[in-house]
């Protein structure tokens, strides 16, 4: 009996099916770790970006100025994401609509709100990207590993049937090697499940904050558009007031 039964030797000695299972699990594990780290980076960035942007947004600076700064950044090649993307979508729509003649304040706000909702959907897609993969790895890889183990154990017992002398030493290496498949499945699944739960919660929290921002911003826009409209069409003032109380 070889004293040095290393993991690698065991893996190399496994049957083809077990090797295949192990390869799948290693691939799943590497991919899910890749995604985990990527998600961590992206969510971290989205977090700080949003904080940053909210700071600037509420600093009292002119919103048009803020919009222009964003445009400049885009020209320089920076990606605008997160809260700022929502702001830009809403603000663009708002300024476009308010330039139209005969636009009613309610319609303007509604239009920019809709634009922001579209941007919000895009953001949530971006944040949740890959999470389903983590969920699948978390739920299926233990089963894949178990399959490899069952297969390997089946094999080593079948070998036992033909040998005249049934000793523990005859089956032990086969079983040990088969169990590696289960270990790998768990190794892939545990981080994936933990990461999935954590990320899902974080994405939820971020989306809630985006939502809150959209509400706040449309509140601002509403005030603004009524003010504009009030100045422009004094005669319709009473109608507008009525609308706002709806």
């Amino acid at each position: 009996m070889a004293d040095e039964l290393s993991v690698i030797e065991l893996i190399m000695g496994a049957s083809f099916t077990v090797k295949l299972v192990m390869a799948i699990l290693v691939a799943a594990s590497v991919t899910s770790w890749f995604m985990i780290v990527q998600r961590v980076i992206i969510l971290q960035r989205a977090d700080t970006e949003l904080l940053d942007f909210e700071d600037r947004f509420w600093s009292g600076m002119d919103l048009a100025q803020l919009y222009r700064e964003g445009s400049n950044a885009i020209e320089e090649g920076t990606d605008i994401t997160g809260g700022e993307a929502l702001f830009r979508a809403g603000f663009k729509e708002f300024s476009k609509l308010s330039r139209q003649p005969n636009m009613d304040a309610e319609a303007i706000v509604e239009g920019s709100r809709r634009a922001m909702r579209v941007a919000l959907t895009r953001e949530s897609d971006r944040l949740e990207h890959n999470l389903p993969f983590l969920a699948s790895v978390g739920s299926t890889s233990p089963y894949i590993g178990l399959f490899g183990t069952v297969w390997g154990i089946m094999h080593s017992f079948r070998g036992l049937a033909t040998s005249s002398q049934a000793t523990l030493a005859a089956v032990a290496p086969g079983i040990s090697e088969a169990l590696i498949a289960t270990a790998m499945g768990l190794f892939a699944a545990i981080p994936a499940v933990l990461a999935y739960n954590r990320f899902a919660a974080r994405v939820d929290a971020l989306l809630n904050r985006y939502d809150a921002f959209v509400d706040e911003f449309s509140g601002l826009l509403q005030r603004q558009s009524y003010a504009q409209q009030g100045g422009r069409v004094g005669s319709r003032d009473s109608g507008v007031q009525g609308g706002s109380s709806l």
Binding site: V30, W33, F34, M35, V37, Q38, I41
Partner: peptide, 11 residues
């Protein structure tokens, strides 16, 4: 960066 760092860490 967003691809290389996770890849590196995963491996």
């Amino acid at each position: 960066l967003i691809i290389a760092v996770p890849l590196f860490v995963a491996v």
